[in-house]
């Protein structure tokens, strides 16, 4: 398991930290240091609110190695309120069916089992339906 890789991405995985472009104010996730909108350098960190809406979703029934324990699980494209879209699992789904446009919010959950038996679980962002009331 690639320890530096998971350490390096901890701000993104645990805090949904991207960047904001100091030139055109576009919000960027994941960070890429060059603004995809205006092409300028953009290295200013920006923590996203974690709020967004479901753009699309699917139910994963044929899970890859490391993810079988949760199968079937729902993966969505979430359009964050600040603009960018992210791919993430949905969690804490009750009886209510998932729908495109449904408001969701970020939570931190275990993403992957210790598939290589090296004692490392991967945690990161998932999204759950926004609690009503």
């Amino acid at each position: 398991m690639e320890n530096p890789r998971y350490w390096r991405l901890k701000k993104q995985r645990y805090g949904l930290v991207g960047e904001v472009c100091p030139h055109c104010n576009s919000k960027i996730f994941p960070p890429r240091d060059v603004c995809p909108e205006c092409g300028s350098e953009a290295r200013t960190e920006y923590a996203f609110s974690g709020k967004g809406k479901v753009y699309s979703y699917t139910v994963m029934r044929d899970a890859p190695a490391g993810y079988e324990q949760n199968a079937p699980y729902t993966v969505a494209i979430v359009a964050l309120d600040e603009g960018p879209m992210v791919t993430a699992q949905l969690t804490d789904l009750g009886e209510e069916p998932v729908q495109i446009g449904m408001p969701v919010e970020m939570v931190t959950r275990k993403l992957r089992e210790d598939v290589e038996k090296k004692g490392i679980l991967v945690y990161g962002y998932k999204f759950r339906p926004v609690m009503q009331g």
Binding site: R5, Q12, P30, Y55, S56, D62, A63, T87, V122, K126
Partner: peptide, 24 residues
């Protein structure tokens, strides 16, 4: 890998996402 695969998506799952949006 970091931003699509690690959340547990596969290429087949991605096609499911695209198809869902198309139908919608």
């Amino acid at each position: 890998y970091d931003y699509e695969s690690i959340p547990g998506l596969t290429s087949t799952g991605q096609a499911g996402l695209i198809m869902q949006r198309y139908l919608y």
